[in-house]
Design a protein around this nucleic acid. Structure first.
Length: 354
DNA sequence: AATTCGGGGAG
DNA sequence: CTCCCAGAATT
């Protein structure tokens, strides 16, 4: 048990004071765990405060509108997390009588709750003996035990999951799970960890074999896809035309503007793009280029152009997701960051708070 | 088994 | 720029 006790001792001395560590309430822990999926603590913390304040109980969450949830989630990314939380809150109200589950086998059935999150909530809320395996745990185990199986391969996931559960300190799974994750986040960092001050270095494979920078091993990712979004700003007096994004693409159920997607960056004079504009907005439409922005996502590079539009016509019957909204209520809609930033720069005279 | 869901911070 | 973050769902 040396490894486990060293981790726990390190944790007692070095842990950060984080709000979700002061509770065993499953709902509160669930909020924090979903928000922190693929998200740094510093980035997620203000969202955790905001969600807990807006939705003190799972009942409050379940009774909110999805638009309200997505508005609070705006800017955090991976918006399916917000939509899945909303669905899960309603499932907890309907199927669990409003009492948030604390057992792994119940949690794993909830939307947006996978192996990591079910282990985290169950161990933190009820002390169930389930090992968490997140990015931190992969890294700590790969380095300390010298495991070079790619962590993003199915074989790697099985191997690390098995080892993590063998190592789990079952007498206090919550303490041990917190300890190994915090150790990975603060001490055994991805880049340039301070091995000289590490209490585990004596028995660490990577440290003793000069392999800290080679572990963990990760399979190469697919090439990023380039996409070209051409947005059209249609303003009629005090109203602007917005579009709710639909399923099977990024930013589902968030709002942007009427858009023509092209295969490359186009000017209004380019043949196919010109034709598409005329087909969409009529022969008399006057187009003016406003701005270009390159927006980086994990798997896509979005080249965004904004165009102003005048003297246009539009066939609404084929575009049910399009809607006129008042310019002064535009800010209330959940929007992807690239759209929100455009609105900030072009429509809002005064800066909004925060 | 591979891909696709964001956005931000560190280096 | 690249990599990674308290991963999960979909194909």
């Amino acid at each position: 048990m040396t490894f486990q006790f060293e981790l726990i001792n390190w944790y007692r001395a070095n842990k950060r004071d984080l709000p979700w560590r002061h509770t065993t309430d499953a709902y509160t822990i669930w909020l924090s765990e979903i928000i922190l999926q693929q998200t740094r603590v510093e980035q997620g913390l203000p969202y955790f405060i905001s969600f807990l304040s807006n939705f003190p109980t799972v009942n409050d969450f379940a009774n909110a509108t999805e638009a309200k949830v997505l508005k609070l989630w705006q800017g955090l990314g991976y918006y399916s997390r917000g939509r899945n939380m909303h669905a899960t809150a309603q499932i907890v109200m309907n199927n669990y009588n409003g009492v948030f589950p604390t057992l792994h086998d119940d949690l794993i059935k909830l939307k947006g709750v996978g192996e990591y999150t079910a282990a985290a909530i169950s161990s933190f809320s009820s002390g169930e003996a389930r090992a968490v395996v997140d990015g931190n745990v992969f890294r700590v185990l790969a380095r300390f035990y010298g495991i070079d199986t790619p962590i993003n391969s199915p074989e790697g996931k099985r191997q690390f999951f098995k080892l993590a559960n063998e190592l789990l300190y079952k007498e206090d799974s919550a303490l041990y799970n917190q300890a190994i994750m915090e150790f990975g986040a603060i001490q055994c960092k991805p880049k340039s960890p301070d091995c000289g001050s590490c209490p585990l270095r004596i028995n660490c494979f990577a440290y003793n074999n000069n392999a800290v920078n080679q572990l963990p091993v990760k399979l190469a990712k697919a090439e990023k896809r380039h996409r070209y979004f051409n947005y059209f700003i249609c303003i009629d007096d005090d109203k602007i035309l917005v579009k709710e994004r639909q399923t099977r693409d990024i930013w589902q159920h968030l709002y942007d503007f009427p858009c023509i997607e092209t295969e490359m960056n186009c000017t209004v004079m380019d043949g196919d793009f010109h034709t598409a504009i005329k087909n969409q907005f009529g022969d008399n439409a006057e187009i003016t280029f406003i701005s270009y922005k390159k927006h980086l996502l994990t798997h896509q590079i979005i080249h965004v152009q904004f165009f102003g539009l005048k003297n246009y016509i539009f066939n609404f019957s084929k575009q049910k997701e399009l809607n006129w909204v008042l310019l002064n209520t535009l800010d209330e809609l959940p929007q992807p960051n690239v759209i929100r930033n455009f609105i900030d720069e072009n429509f809002l005279a005064q800066k909004r708070p925060n």
